Amino acid sequence: MSVTTTGQESVSATLTFAAPAARVFAVVADPTTHAAIDGTGWVQQAADPEPLTAVGQIFRMAMHHAGHPDGDYETVNQVEVLDAPRAIGWLTGYEKDDGRLEFGGWIWRYDLVPLGRSETGVTLTYDWSAVPQSIREYLQFPPFGPDHLTGSLHHLAELVHARAGQ
């Protein structure tokens, strides 16, 4: 396991999984698994349970954070990268009162590198380099410690292993 902070505006962690890349990708591309993968406990459940299959696809997640003004809230996510089974990533934002979607400039990305037939190197990156100053004035980045990415990758590995036994 390695955790890396690259520059001042992204953090990543890498873990080797004892599973082929396609199996790992299938779990990450399933929004119903995101609450179990999340290392913070903020993700509650998928509001849109359909698998992620295309760049531009929108999916929503029910969230909870004690520091959020509403406590319970919903994020809107837009798939920005989808190269099965090598990479998947999404921007996170919200829906405005007028129905327009607004994204904050941070992206979650998983990169999968096959290490033979039955192992995959998985790197999870949280990148906030595109967050505008107006958002940086009231949100601190990253909003979690480095153990979040490590925990998320370990949760993902457990899910991948459990699904292999089904």
Results as ranks from 00 to 15, higher is better:
P49A: 14
P69C: 01
R86Y: 07
L82R: 05
A35F: 05
D98G: 06
L101T: 07
A54F: 02
L101M: 11
D70N: 11
A26G: 08
E102D: 12
W42C: 13
D30I: 10
Q44D: 13
A36R: 15
K96N: 13
I58S: 04
D70V: 01
K96V: 01
R100Q: 13
W90R: 03
V27Q: 09
R23Y: 09
Y94H: 12
L112Q: 09
P49T: 14
Q78E: 12
G99C: 06
D72S: 10
M63F: 02
E102C: 11
G41C: 12
Q57T: 05
P69D: 01
Y110G: 00
G93I: 03
A84H: 04
A46W: 02
G56W: 06
I37P: 05
A29L: 12
I37G: 02
E50S: 14
A46E: 09
G39W: 00
R86S: 12
D97I: 05
R86H: 14
D83Y: 01
G104F: 15
V43D: 06
A54N: 06
I88S: 00
T75C: 03
W42T: 15
A46G: 10
D83E: 11
Y94T: 12
T92C: 03
T92R: 04
W106S: 07
I37W: 08
T75P: 02
E74H: 03
V24E: 08
H65A: 12
P114T: 10
D38T: 13
E50I: 05
A84C: 00
I88V: 07
A26D: 15
V79Q: 00
M61K: 06
T75M: 05
M63G: 04
Q45H: 14
A29T: 12
Q78H: 02
D83V: 04
G41Q: 04
D83N: 05
G67V: 02
R86T: 12
V28K: 04
T33Y: 13
D48I: 08
D30M: 08
P69N: 03
A66D: 11
A54R: 14
I37M: 14
A47K: 15
E95H: 00
P69S: 01
R109E: 10
G89E: 02
M63E: 05
G104K: 06
V76M: 00
P51T: 13
D83L: 01
G67F: 08
Q45F: 13
V81W: 04
A62R: 14
L82F: 08
D111H: 06
V24F: 11
L101S: 08
V81T: 13
H68V: 01
R86K: 10
E50Y: 09
H64A: 01
D38R: 06
D38L: 11
M63S: 04
R109P: 07
P31D: 11
N77T: 02
G89N: 01
V24T: 14
M61A: 11
Q45S: 15
